[in-house]
Amino acid sequence: MGAALLRIDELTKTFGKNTAVDRATIQVDRPMMIGIIGRSGAGKSTLLRMLNRLTDHTSGQVVFEGRDVTALKGAEKRAWQADCAMIFQQFNLVPRMDVVSNVLHGTLNKRSTLASLFNLFPEADIHRAIDILDRLGIAEHAPKRAEALSGGQQQRVAIARALMQDPKIILADEPIASLDPMNAQIVMDALRRIHEEDGRTVIANLHTLDTARRYCDRVIGMLHGRIVFDGTPEQLTTGVARDIYGADASFSEEATSTEIGALNRTTRPAPIPA
């Protein structure tokens, strides 16, 4: 194998006698948008948390641009977490804080303790935060409290906060699980544009097969902590999905879908313009 952008080798996480992620091995040679699917408890979130170093691994290795990130400690570990931004299902915003300040919190790892304590941000950072919000279509909400926004708008604020870190990788843990279909589409459109326009790798845990097919260049399926599928959206047939979810012949994709569509698609649907 040649030099990879990201290489995950035999990555494993155990909690007591339970194995959450079992020898996961993935190689990413270029920036792409990757979807990870699987039923609840398959190990998807634990895998992302190990990539970001929010959770320590039990064994294995994560190498990014030739550097072993699983061995990083202290300031180097925090720098990696800035390079590998995390977006969560529940947004993780400060509800009573205004939107632009929430976005500026993406720079806290680069600020002094005193500046962070008193929310002192350079004017250039404030302008950049507003530019990012404008890119995501919510600049007019910059002075509002985060709690005043809809769920879809709050998730875009969380994406803007991640972009303030200027990350090389964006990890999104079920970013649309709590959103209605329209807002889910807006958020996924935003993540796809960030990948295409910025050349950033985006890895998203997804709970719907149609979303994985529509937005991702590559789909990884997990079952009982193991990777059981790694292929293109076109290869994600109903039979493959049945295996990923450990389901029998009665499996229906509608149970995991946000839209009505054919089960065995031979071509990917064109993304709806933002």
Rank of each mutant, 00 (worst) to 15 (best):
P143D: 10
R193V: 13
N264V: 10
T237S: 12
D180P: 03
E174R: 04
G16F: 07
L263D: 15
Q27W: 08
D217R: 04
N109A: 15
S178Y: 01
L114S: 12
R214D: 06
H57T: 14
N18M: 13
L6V: 05
A42D: 08
P181M: 01
E140D: 13
T256E: 00
V202N: 08
G74K: 05
E10P: 01
A204C: 12
Q155E: 02
N18Y: 15
L48M: 10
S252Q: 13
E123N: 10
C216E: 09
R49F: 11
I34M: 14
I36F: 02
R135V: 03
D68L: 10
S112V: 10
T19N: 06
R49M: 13
E174F: 00
R30Y: 09
F91L: 01
E10Q: 15
D210N: 14
Q154C: 05
N264I: 00
H57V: 12
E123T: 12
L171I: 05
T55R: 05
T256F: 14
P95G: 09
G261F: 05
R128H: 12
A247R: 04
R111L: 14
A129E: 06
D248N: 14
T256K: 02
M50P: 14
I37C: 00
R268W: 00
W80L: 12
R268G: 02
R78E: 15
G231L: 04
G38V: 06
I203T: 03
I26M: 04
L54N: 07
P122W: 09
G151V: 10
R156M: 10
P273V: 09
I36D: 02
D125T: 09
G231T: 07
G2Q: 13
L136F: 00
G2Y: 11
G41Q: 08
I227F: 04
G43M: 01
T70R: 07
N205E: 01
I260Q: 14
V240W: 00
V157G: 03
D56K: 13
L54K: 06
R135G: 14
R218M: 05
P31N: 03
T267K: 08
G199H: 14
M222P: 06
S250L: 01
N92S: 08
S150P: 03
R145V: 08
H127L: 15
H127E: 15
D125M: 12
H141K: 14
D125R: 07
R200P: 11
R145Y: 06
T238C: 10
P269L: 10
G261I: 10
D173W: 01
K44F: 01
S178W: 04
G16H: 06
R135N: 09
K77Y: 01
G137Y: 01
Q235T: 02
G199R: 13
R145N: 13
Q235V: 05
T70D: 03
G43S: 05
D230E: 02
V228M: 04
A85Y: 12
G239C: 05
G60C: 09
D189M: 04
V157Q: 02
K17L: 13
K44T: 02
S40F: 02
P269K: 02
T113D: 12
Q154G: 05
R218H: 01
N183S: 15
L149T: 02
I126E: 14
D98K: 13
Q185S: 08
Q153I: 05
R135Y: 07
F121Y: 15
A247C: 04
R135K: 12
S250N: 04
R30L: 04
E76V: 07
I227S: 11
